[in-house]
Simulated assay, not measured.
Amino acid sequence: MRFSPLEPATTRENPCKIALEARMLELFAPANARTGDLAAANGIQNASLWRSDAIHRARNLAQLTHSLANLSEHPSRRWLPDTLVVQTRSLARAYEELGAECDQTELVPCVPLLTEIATRLPLIFAIARNLAAVVDTQPVTLVPDMRRALILMCSELIINTLKYGYPDGAGGVIRVSLTNEPAGVRLIVEDDGVGAASAAMAGQGSALLEQLGDIMGASLTRSPGDNSQGYRVSAQIETIAAHPA
Rank of each mutant, 00 (worst) to 15 (best):
E21G: 10
E21Y: 10
L27Y: 12
F28G: 06
F28Y: 15
T35L: 13
L38F: 11
A41T: 15
I44N: 10
Q45I: 11
Q45C: 10
R51G: 12
I55F: 11
H56L: 12
L61Q: 15
L64Y: 06
T65I: 07
S67F: 05
N70P: 00
N70V: 09
N70E: 13
N70I: 09
P75C: 03
S76Y: 06
R77G: 05
R77N: 15
R77F: 11
R78S: 13
W79F: 10
L84W: 01
L84S: 04
T88V: 08
T88D: 06
A92L: 04
A92P: 09
A94K: 06
G99W: 07
A100Y: 09
T105M: 10
T105P: 01
V111M: 03
L114M: 14
R120E: 01
I124T: 02
A126K: 10
I127M: 11
A128V: 05
R129K: 14
R129E: 14
N130G: 08
A132I: 04
D136M: 01
D136H: 04
D136S: 11
T137N: 03
T141N: 06
L142V: 01
D145R: 06
D145N: 08
R147D: 01
R147V: 01
R147Q: 15
A149D: 02
L150I: 03
L152K: 02
C154E: 09
S155D: 07
S155E: 02
E156N: 04
L157G: 00
L157Q: 10
I158Q: 01
T161W: 00
L162T: 06
K163E: 10
Y164P: 03
Y164F: 10
D168F: 04
G172H: 00
R175I: 00
T179K: 15
P182M: 04
P182V: 03
A183S: 14
R186T: 11
R186F: 00
I188R: 04
V194H: 07
A196P: 00
S198P: 00
A199R: 12
A200L: 02
A200Y: 05
A202L: 10
G203D: 15
S206L: 09
Q211L: 14
L212W: 03
I215G: 08
M216L: 13
G217F: 11
G217E: 09
S223L: 12
G225P: 02
Q229G: 01
R232A: 07
S234A: 15
I237L: 15
T239V: 10
